[in-house]
């Protein structure tokens, strides 16, 4: 039995401790907003927050998350900053197929929440782990810049 706290709810799940968190979220808890893309932390589609930090849930054993707070795309909109990010994603019409965008947004929110100064280089670094096959990178950057400006952390 594993205990996980996801989006402020504690769940006890009957899975082996080495099952990656991704599959607990998707297959057991039916939180399918977090996506599977590569299984080896190369694409970032599975990005969620653990205690506010972005992590790749496809390689994180569920046994290692007990006592930690996991937040997924389904609940991130409860945070005002994340709402701004989601809004910016729509204003900039970022998504194409949309499959990677949960992960992109989770990475972007963490970048914005955890930094007092954000510039292009910071965006490059923070978003480097997220592949978009539709290649919406330019719009992702603009959306992040917009939010950075609106919350006063943008450093041109």
């Amino acid at each position: 039995m594993q205990t996980v706290k996801v989006n402020n709810q504690t769940h006890v799940v009957d899975v082996p401790g080495d099952m990656p968190l991704l599959w607990v979220l998707r297959d057991i808890l039916k939180l399918t907003g977090t996506k599977f893309g590569c299984g080896i932390a190369q694409c970032g589609a599975c990005t969620v927050h653990m205690d506010g930090q972005p992590i790749r849930s496809c390689v994180l054993p569920v046994g290692d998350v007990s006592g930690r707070e996991i937040t997924t795309i389904e609940a991130i909109g409860e945070q005002p900053l994340a709402q701004k990010v989601q809004r910016a994603w729509l204003d900039h019409e970022v998504a194409q197929c949309g499959y990677c965008q949960s992960g992109q947004i989770m990475s972007a929110v963490a970048l914005l929440a955890n930094n007092n100064r954000i510039d292009d280089h910071a965006i490059d670094q923070a978003m480097a782990g997220n592949i978009c096959r539709c290649a919406t990178y330019t719009r992702i950057r603009s959306a992040i810049q917009d939010v950075s400006e609106s919350v006063g952390v943008w450093q041109p």
């Binding site: 939180l31 399918t32 907003g33 977090t34 996506k35 599977f36 997924t72 795309i73 389904e74 909109g77 989601q86 994603w89 729509l90 019409e93 970022v94 998504a95 949309g98 499959y99 965008q101 949960s102 947004i105």
Partner: peptide
């Protein structure tokens, strides 16, 4: 504004997977 994008920023969009 695209009709499908609001569901693609909050985890609601369903793909086959």
């Amino acid at each position: 504004q695209r009709l499908d994008t609001p569901a693609k920023v909050n985890g609601e969009a369903k793909f086959t997977i």
